[in-house]
């Protein structure tokens, strides 16, 4: 039987399948670990409604906890409060940058107006130049947008604040 601290430690090693440099705990999607008589319950919150990695993450969580010695493990989804990129751990930000993804700026408050043709001056994660252009609000996954560095000419991604 695992202790709660051991369970969290095992979860620290579960990678996000889309961004394998950060763990699910660093992403802030593991909300709670509950040790009950009927086994271990892990409460997770989805990043985006349609995130295709959600089911794979749940499977990886069960596998990791069982490998660490847990008995029965179940994963529950909780929507409220909705996940925010503000919950991404400080430790993950540098890892994201090194991986080629600019970490998210603070999320907008819920009542915020939609801004037209927003040009965020993001520094290129490779060469540091701020001479960059947004190519699309949506990148290889819903959580990222696609940019290009006009100096080193490399494409890069930005983790969208949500």
């Amino acid at each position: 039987m695992l202790t709660e601290a051991q369970a969290w430690q095992a979860l620290d090693a579960v990678e996000d399948p889309e961004i394998p440099v950060v763990s699910v705990t660093e992403l802030g999607i593991v909300r709670e670990v509950i040790l009950g008589e009927d086994g271990l319950r892990v409460v997770v919150t989805p990043t985006y409604s349609g995130c295709p990695a959600t089911e794979m993450i749940a499977e990886s969580i069960v596998d990791a906890l069982k490998a660490a010695g847990a008995g029965k493990v179940s994963v529950e989804t909780r929507l409220a409060p909705p996940w925010s990129t503000d919950w991404i751990a400080e430790s993950a930000r540098e890892k994201l940058r090194a991986y080629g993804i600019v970490p998210p700026q603070p999320a907008l408050p819920d009542g915020a107006q939609v801004v037209r043709f927003m040009s965020r001056k993001l520094p290129c994660p490779r060469c540091g130049s701020s001479h960059t252009t947004r190519l699309s609000e949506f990148g290889s996954t819903a959580c990222k947008s696609l940019y290009r560095c006009e100096d080193c000419r490399e494409p890069f991604e930005y983790f969208k604040p949500i």
């Binding site: 989805p46 409604s49 996940w83 907008l108 819920d110 915020a112 939609v114 927003m118 609000e137 969208k160």
Partner: peptide, 14 residues
């Protein structure tokens, strides 16, 4: 709704 609202903002922006 709280979850979808965050996504809708990006849809309307785009």
């Amino acid at each position: 709704a709280a979850k979808s609202l965050k996504e809708a903002r990006y849809h309307v922006e785009h």
